[in-house]
Computed example of a mutant assay.
Amino acid sequence: MAKYNIATIYGDGIGPEVARSSVRVLKNALGSDALHFEELPGGAEHYVDSGEVLPEDTFTACRDMDAILHGAAGLPGVTYEDGTEVGNDLHLLLRFKLDLYANMRPVKLLKGVTSPLAAFRDGGAIDYIIVRENTEGLYASRGAGVVLRGEIASDSLIVTRKGTERVARFALNVARKRNGAPRDGVSRLTVCDKANILRSFAFFRGICDEVSTDFPDVEIDYAYADAMTVHLVKKPDFYDVIVAENMFGDIISDLGAVTVGGMGVSPSGEIGDNHALFQGAHGSAPDIAGQDGASPVATILSSALMLDWLGERHDDTNLVEGANRIRNAVNAVLSAGEFIPRDLGGSARCSEMTEAICRALD
């Protein structure tokens, strides 16, 4: 059996709790010999202690190991002189240094979870993936914006042909592998932009169009970002895969998460050609850290995404089967209704959810 080395950064706040839960579930799903977890320092608390948010040894391990599993990073008041948060730099540095250009955010209504959308209450009624371009767009200006004499501030939005082509191709490949949108079963890529206003987004749309000609089996669709916030509430079952610029993708993925129960059940993967990082879409929630009150579901589902990626990359069906077993176990626990995390209206602690998911795997 192949063995994979996982760079594991627990981070801040609830990060250590949810990451340890995920490690336990992964070992339960695959056995203790399939994955080796290397615990590495990093995050806002480490910055306070050492002056480094991402130590060089941690980066080297992340670069050289098979995948990265991250809990969460960030603490209130731990900021740089320009006011930006230190914790965010952990995964941002990894994102840019390792060229993790596609942020994949599945939005799926799980069995046993009540959507705030009255028309979509059944598990699977909402099931789409947002692919967010992860290294360009407005976020490319991080650390490089200009503030003039305390009167004018500016950041640049960057869209390149290379960056757009590869994220569009990534998103179209994701659509090709899925079963289509819940409403009609059509494999569909929706391009989310503001092509009616800004040349950069018209350029983004045009390149997505060009790449889509290589995927005649995937329908191409368009939505302006402001209209998308309406569509994801009114007709979420129409969507299969959505591709968007960095900032727009960030915003609509949080909106999508709320429609399926919130950030506590929302996984994410930051994926490049040779490296990938997986973490729950939520933050570090320091106000509940150390209380065993966090939901581990998002990070556990992110670890399943990690197995999908590793399994496909290494043609290892054992990992893909393990990922499916983890998702099935999460669904089984939530649909049974005995153990529901606090963020979904229940009272189950992080440790109780972890135990219940492990039992479901057994």
Rank of each mutant, 00 (worst) to 15 (best):
V191H: 01
F238Y: 15
R169V: 11
L26M: 04
V78W: 12
I126V: 13
E52V: 06
E210W: 08
M65D: 12
L255E: 15
L307W: 04
D214M: 11
E210R: 11
R149Y: 12
R132L: 05
M104G: 02
D193M: 03
P41T: 03
G264L: 07
G262E: 06
E38C: 06
V18L: 03
A125F: 08
V159D: 06
I197W: 09
T259S: 12
S22L: 00
R149L: 14
G145T: 12
F203G: 07
A61P: 01
S187V: 07
G261Q: 04
P216N: 09
A102S: 11
G185Q: 09
L277K: 07
G163A: 14
V53L: 01
G249D: 11
T354K: 01
V258L: 15
E312R: 09
G322F: 08
L92F: 13
G311I: 02
K27L: 10
G13W: 00
T135N: 08
P106T: 04
H314G: 00
S303A: 15
L69W: 05
R105N: 10
A125M: 08
Y139F: 15
I152S: 12
D315Q: 15
E45H: 09
A168M: 13
E270R: 13
I300M: 07
I126H: 00
D343V: 03
G262V: 08
E352Q: 15
H231G: 00
G51I: 04
A336E: 14
L40T: 08
E338Y: 02
R121V: 13
T317G: 07
G283T: 10
L305P: 05
T114L: 05
R359I: 13
A102T: 06
R188S: 13
L110W: 03
A225R: 03
C350L: 10
A175K: 04
E17G: 05
P55L: 02
G150Q: 10
D217T: 12
A102L: 07
D221H: 13
V320E: 09
L301E: 06
L189M: 12
Y101K: 01
P55N: 05
Y224M: 15
I207D: 08
G283Y: 12
G74I: 11
D12C: 02
A323R: 07
G74E: 08
R327A: 06
T8Y: 12
L334F: 00
G87V: 10
E17C: 06
C350D: 07
G83L: 13
G256P: 03
Y10F: 14
K194R: 12
I326Y: 00
I288N: 05
G280F: 08
V131C: 14
Y47T: 02
